[in-house]
Amino acid sequence: MKTIAGTFFIMLSLLSCGEKTATDAEKDDQLPITGTWKLITGTLIEKGDTTITDYTKNTSFIKIINDTHFAFLQHDLNKGKDSTAAFSSGGGTYSLKDSTYSEHLEYCTAREWEGSDFPFTIEIKNDTLVQRGVEKVVSAGVDRLNIEKYVRMK
Rank of each mutant, 00 (worst) to 15 (best):
K2N: 14
T3C: 06
T3H: 10
T3Q: 07
T3S: 11
T3E: 13
I4K: 05
G6I: 09
L14C: 07
L14G: 06
S16H: 12
G18Q: 08
E19V: 08
K20H: 14
A22N: 14
E26Y: 08
D29R: 14
I33H: 06
T36H: 00
W37M: 03
W37N: 00
I40R: 00
L44D: 15
E46L: 12
T51F: 02
T56A: 12
K57E: 14
K57A: 14
S60F: 09
F61A: 11
K63R: 15
D67M: 11
T68P: 03
F70T: 02
A71Q: 05
L73S: 08
Q74N: 04
H75I: 05
D76C: 10
G80D: 02
D82K: 04
F87R: 08
S89Q: 13
G91R: 07
G91I: 00
G92I: 04
T93R: 09
T93D: 15
Y94D: 00
Y94F: 01
S95I: 12
D98M: 06
D98W: 10
S99E: 15
T100V: 14
Y101L: 11
Y101T: 08
S102C: 15
E106N: 11
E112C: 12
E114L: 02
E114C: 08
D117Q: 15
F120T: 02
E123H: 04
N126Y: 04
N126P: 00
N126C: 01
D127H: 07
D127Y: 01
T128R: 04
R132P: 05
S139I: 07
R144A: 12
L145N: 14
Y150L: 04
V151N: 07
R152Q: 00
M153C: 15
M153I: 10
M153Q: 12
